[in-house]
């Protein structure tokens, strides 16, 4: 795209692995990359780049956001068993949620890596039953989660008692498509989201209305982040008065904005990560339509999910394209 079509901005991805790879290439070629769905810490952590920007939230924020509700709902004496997709996103998600739950007082019984794209999780779910754990945390996304969550429910984990408590399943990171794919298994399961089409602010309502009129379905959080990233790039170009990447980057860095559905938002200059409210959601027990799969049950304020960029390391690199 960059060499053949002369693209001056690249956007879109569905995993952190893709985002990190595309971002690095765009940086080398001096083209701004506005990432899509990438939730791993590395994108704006150890693999951050001057030419890469992320509006989507990430694993650390999910952990911080979900922890208070987990403590409130399930208590502070829990034993957690992690099943984690064995790739970049899974590792950082596991680390973040483990840190957050251990800070609550939860004990981690075991963290088991599962191959990416596995279909049958039964061999990994069977050991959970006799592990002494009373919470299963599924650090799975996409097809992995669509398969692993229903299979965990089939194993009777929602009805099971362990250590004198109701056994629980947690999916730290949700998307609407995953929730639909998992069917009834998602009911009552707690997780986090970047954005939800049922938010009541004017920006979200306007976006949902126009998207729904065009496609007949409400927008996903991926559609939302893609739309917002494009708007933000266009706005930065207007404010910079040029397409020249170093000037557009400076216009995006430390830019504060509002009206995109998550309240006041900051594009932090030191790591190019957006900071905004994080939604805590729960699988809807009584959906009124096939789109009504997740309920927003909490919003964790932006200040609470912010962190020191130094904890994830990495260097942004130079502004000038010929120095990248």
């Amino acid at each position: 795209m960059i060499e053949r079509d002369g693209a001056i901005m690249v956007t879109g991805c569905v995993t952190t692995g893709e985002a990190v790879a595309q971002q690095a290439l765009c940086h080398e070629l001096g083209v701004i990359y506005m990432s899509g769905l990438t939730h791993g810490n590395d994108t704006t952590g150890k693999d951050k780049r001057r030419y890469g920007f992320r509006h989507f939230f990430q694993g650390y924020m999910s952990g911080v956001a979900i922890a208070p509700l987990l403590a409130e709902e399930y208590g502070r004496e829990r034993r957690a068993y992690h099943l984690t997709a064995d790739y970049n996103w899974g590792w950082t998600q596991e680390e973040s949620i483990m840190n957050a739950t251990e800070a609550l007082g939860w004990e981690t019984v075991r963290a088991v890596r599962t191959p990416l794209g596995l279909g049958d999780y039964s061999q990994y779910l069977t050991p959970v039953l006799n592990s002494g754990a009373d919470v299963l945390i599924l650090n799975h996304y996409g097809h992995d989660m669509v398969n692993s969550l229903p299979q965990a429910v089939q194993f009777g984990m929602r009805e099971r008692m362990a250590n004198g408590k109701q056994f629980e399943i947690v999916v730290p990171m949700f998307s609407e498509l995953m929730a639909v794919g998992a069917g009834d298994a998602v009911k009552g399961i707690i997780g986090t989201q970047n954005w939800n089409w049922q938010l009541e602010d004017d920006g979200s309502k306007a976006f949902t209305k126009s998207y729904g009129a065009e496609y007949g379905v409400p927008p996903s959080q991926s559609a939302h982040t893609g739309y917002v990233q494009t708007l933000l790039y266009a706005d930065a170009v207007e404010r910079a008065g040029t397409f020249y990447p170093p000037e557009v980057i400076k216009a995006l860095e430390d830019f504060e904005f509002d009206g995109m559905g998550n309240g006041p938002t900051l594009y932090r200059g030191s790591d190019h990560q957006c900071f905004k409210e994080v939604l805590v959601v729960r699988g809807n027990e009584a959906p009124t339509s096939r789109f009504d799969v997740l309920d927003v049950v909490g919003k964790t304020p932006r200040e609470e999910v912010m962190y020191d960029p130094a904890i994830f390391g990495g260097e942004l690199g130079p502004y000038e394209p010929n120095q990248c």
């Binding site: 089409w197 049922q198 309502k205 949902t208 209305k209 126009s210 998207y211 729904g212 009129a213 007949g216 409400p218 339509s289």
Partner: peptide, 8 residues
């Protein structure tokens, strides 16, 4: 009406 104003 759906959230985007279309009849259900």
């Amino acid at each position: 009406l759906s959230p985007w104003g279309a009849p259900v």
